[in-house]
Write a protein that binds this DNA or RNA. Structure first.
Lengths: 233, 233
DNA sequence: CCCTTAAAATTGCTGCTGCCTTATTGTTTT
DNA sequence: AAAACAATAAGGCAGCAGCAATTTTAAGGG
């Protein structure tokens, strides 16, 4: 069974997440800071590591950098601020995934499983089908529901949860209209009513973000009186 | 079966809520503005009314005021801004309840049912036990989960959902400590992790709001290293 | 083709949340 | 006691969501 190292300065995260992971059948070791984790790793390397970015003594970035000189085990970052995410994504510093705080433990477990599966596939020489199958590609749009990451015309676009859900619903069937009501159903729990114009607001912000990548083509079209439609170019 | 009048300028609310209420077995009539509702009411009065505050031609406040000259049927206001709520509460203008937008239809149905029950009890001369049974009283604190309203030392205090849940959990057992973990369980879905300090933040804001009513006594006590405790005076 | 009206886009604002930083308070050690 | 350490409080900030107000765009009727 896989041994997972958990490094975070918040003891509450450590114990709580550790319990969850152990319940899921993983073997877990926990560390309060990068320094002590690093020392332990030099004695015995875990199968994968979950690191908080911000920590006393040695932060997640430093730790990863030093780890990478010795090993290539999968690493997941825990991040709280958006600029930290940018750093993880932008610098391509060797992290395999990241999870934004506050996070659901269910999600973290999913990610861990996904990475371990991929690792397994690599080790046995299989094609890593997991990532490919979950990706959604529609024209120049690539969405990864698991990682919650979106690429538009090759560039990473940071979407909020609501924006992501709406875009996903629209892109699911390019060329078909979706009414605001249908879009609400996707983005909200049943029974919760929000204003029609609120959907418009989210579409507005979506368009703005996509426009910042390419302002010559608008993928989300308005059907006057009906709703919205996603078009491939 | 009860006839309910629904008055709102947003057609989406009208149709959506009307459908729900009809599915719940109510007889529903809808109006786009206060003026037409008023005219209809003068012909035949419904058993109860749900009014949007802000409307063209005649707004909910005006409508209610005119209605009150003829009838005392239960009225629920739909409000979106906090100052509107203050108005409803502060002016005591004869509304029986209010629901904040965005609202869940389930909640609205609950409120309607509650008011109709109370009305029924009044008509038949029974004691209206509904409100009393659902109220929670702990010392100078009164909490009404259904209305989501809180009174501290006689004064209305506006709490957010999270604050309400935390205070409710604490006040449930005066004199007993609750750890941050326990409080998290109350306020958050299972599996979602938030920082310990975030609980502190909510407690901070709770205290601040309660302090603005009375700054000589603090009902929420800190147990160093343990958690928080609610004390009756 | 212009005018009217309805729908949608945009801008801007507010409330809630979560976390960070700094200051304070409480606890333990010496 | 005083110092060292840990936990908490206070203030403040940024992201997100939802809505309102205003402007712009589209549709339909003369």
């Amino acid at each position: 069974m896989s041994r997972i190292a958990l490094v975070d300065d918040d003891r509450n995260i450590l114990t709580s997440v550790a319990m969850t992971l152990e319940a899921e059948g993983f073997e877990v070791e926990t560390y309060n800071d990068g320094q002590s984790a690093f020392e332990a790793f030099s004695r015995r390397m875990p199968d994968m590591a979950v690191l908080d970015i911000k920590m006393p003594r040695m932060d997640g970035m430093d730790l990863l950098q030093r780890m990478r000189q010795k090993t290539s085990i999968p690493v997941i970052f825990l991040t709280s601020k958006d600029d930290e995410i940018d750093e993880v994504l932008g610098l391509r510093m060797g992290a395999d995934d990241y999870v934004k705080k506050p996070f659901s433990q269910r999600l973290l477990v999913e990610r861990i499983r996904a990475l371990l599966r991929r690792q397994e596939a690599i080790n046995t020489g299989e094609a890593a089908a997991t990532e490919e199958t979950r990706m959604m590609e529609r024209g120049a749009l690539r969405m990864d529901p698991l990682r919650h990451s979106v690429t538009w015309k090759g560039k990473e676009v940071a979407l909020t949860v609501t924006e992501f859900l709406l875009l996903q619903a629209l892109a699911q069937r390019p060329g078909f209209v979706k009414s605001r009501d249908q879009l609400m159903d996707v983005a909200y729990d049943d029974q919760v009513y929000v204003d029609d114009r609120t959907i418009d607001s989210h579409i507005k912000r979506l368009r703005k973000k996509m426009r910042s990548v390419d302002d010559t083509f608008s993928a989300i079209e308005t059907l006057y009186g009906i709703g919205y439609r996603y078009n491939e170019e």
